[in-house]
Design a protein around this nucleic acid. Structure first.
Lengths: 215, 215, 215, 215
DNA sequence: TATGAATGAGGTTTCATTCAT
DNA sequence: CATGAATGAAACCTCATTCAT
């Protein structure tokens, strides 16, 4: 993971390996950068701004990271790796489709909570970043996620848990957009906890907004 | 419409007034710019790229538009004005909540279809753009839309059309994100027409993905 | 005069000869340009601004004038020609030094009044313009003026009209700067007429600001 | 001194605070820029020219200064602050009007000598610069100077040191223009020292150019 | 680790001027 | 005479990155 293929064969060991415990400083800088990237966009955030927010000069950042994109890379990978593992855990439990979907939604919202900045970046800029070679893996991650959701939806439809006329692709997209876009308005200090939001979303998605007595 | 009260228009008469039928060239250039903005992002799209796509030099663009942001401005305003009027029409019909919500959703998807590039820009960059004085009106437009949806949801909940335990704010956000984010994957040449997508979305939203017999 | 050596051998007869009676439109445009050049500086005034002030498009100006600098040229020449003739008249009268100096000052201030915009341009930009080949004549004009003033001062010193210890060069410069710089604050609608200003200046220059009884 | 409260300094720490001793490089660059601004005018001097004169690339200048105008700003403030203090010292000595006027003139010419480039810029471009928000303080500085001179002139007139019929405003303007415009022709390597020029100017101003025996 | 000076490519914008209609 | 579209050079400025100290 994180091959860090330095094009610039400089002798300086700016980037460490992935599993690296990493100095606290490194994590600190990464957190600062993530917040700025999320708030202003990756392109709109200058290396100078990141450095200044950290109280150092822009040149000094290059002792910790190879490049600006290397920071984005690390921020995104951490989130994606976590989320993939989290989804896999659910699948491995092998519950019924409705339970599984609900749990996937819960874990997605928890991802929003825990990796807020990373999710924001992923949501806002995955499309543009994917055009850069270094971020090829974003497309793979999206495909992995898609496979997970679609498998559960298809399974549920065939077992009768979900409507027979459900369009799997559309349903998947609505769910995906619904959970990730929440990052735009979710605030950890807001009135609703992330769990409450997840439950509401599950309710709407599974049973609709219409009052049940109508049927 | 389109008041174009640019503070920065110091003496330059590059942009015409609003109701202006406008030369075809102008509309042509705007369409080209919109596609690029949508595809690559506003910041990432250079004026030079727009000009080259139109077969002219970058400086020549300034004969038609005051600035890059002036183009973004015009693109967004056209969509927002249309959408606002479209929503207002529905409200004026005064149908019941469920019918109204369905119609609002249909008209939103039609907006996605007709103003695809503009919706993409709005969806991707409204947050960042709103930080610029010139784009203050984006916040107002968002608030206007929010009021429309929330009024109908609240009305439907009190008349018993919608679940009594529905969280209006969350429901509004899910709907909003669901319809606008569709622009990311909707293709006019795809298998599903925009109307089919709208109906599927209405179905899921109103009645959920779960099979009805469960209740 | 006004050779108008068109580098661009275009067949269009944009510029007329000098003695040309000239259409009113031409004079009108020149007056508009002069005001703008004076108010904002030659460089800072765009051709577009001139055209817009005249209610036409920038391209249309080129039917009347060869270039922006051609306008500056004409504006300056008119003033310089007039002023030169005016000074010559005084010299030809052959009055005594003090009378002559006073009259030169009066005629300078009258020049400020009548060619306000031109004097402003001359005062503000002669130095920079003189670097352009086309404006070589500015240096000659300055030298001509200098010769006039110095001749009178020298004459007056040798006849005893002026102090024996007068530094001719410095005196000339103070006078020159005093009269031309007045253009920066003189207003035809101000409290003091241009003649009153001239008389005050003559008084200060000849007899000083100190009260006479002190000697 | 030099508050440098740039509104535009959004997050960039290019320019240091005021009391800053400042790296030598900074002062060096400022001196180079000042000479060019004085010689060619602010607008006509390109950032590239400044950089090339300093042996660096244009972009590198922005490591030291926020913008071209920021350089102009610093150059002007240094001169204005100095001159204001210098005038205040004279006033605090409380000598009689004629002595005070003479000393103010001496100190003005010394300002011309010491801040030649800055005075040239101030003299040539204050009018145009004052139209820019950032240079609002130029108007204030002019007003401050005006008050100083007028106070002394008024005082001298009422104590009988100066002519009873002296027009204070005109006298002030002639003096102001006379001393500052000298920057256009003064050369530190010329025949006359700045002190000699000052004394000649004082003599002419106080007692006139006319021979005394005439009265 | 950090600084501070510099690079160099590229961005948006300006503007005098041209020219077919 | 005037328009309106375009040119092309050059302006100011930005910013990721490098590197000697």
């Amino acid at each position: 993971m994180k091959p860090v293929s330095t094009k610039h064969s400089s002798g300086r060991a700016a980037s460490r390996g992935a599993g690296d415990t990493g100095s606290d400083r490194r994590a600190e800088l990464l957190a600062i950068a993530a917040e700025l990237f999320a708030a202003r966009g990756v392109r709109a955030t200058t290396v100078r701004e990141i450095a200044e927010s950290a109280g150092i000069l822009s040149g000094s950042l290059y002792h910790h990271f190879e490049s600006k994109n290397a920071m984005v890379d690390e921020i995104l990978r951490e989130f994606l790796d976590h989320q993939r593992r989290s989804y896999d855990e659910v699948l491995r439990e092998g519950a019924d489709a409705r339970t599984t979907i609900a749990e996937l939604i819960r874990r997605s919202f928890r991802g929003v909570h825990r990796y807020r900045a990373a999710v924001t970046i992923f949501q806002n800029e995955a499309n543009h970043l994917a055009g850069i070679e270094r971020f090829d893996y974003l497309r793979q991650a999206s495909r992995d996620f898609e496979r997970v959701w679609k498998r559960v939806l298809t399974d549920g439809r065939s077992t009768g848990a979900f409507r027979a006329d459900l369009n799997i692709t559309l349903a998947y997209r609505f769910i995906r957009d619904g959970v990730w876009t929440a990052v735009h308005w979710y605030s950890p200090r807001g009135r609703l906890t992330i769990n409450a939001i997840a439950e509401q979303y599950i309710a709407i998605l599974c049973d609709g907004i219409a009052a049940p007595e109508r049927r």
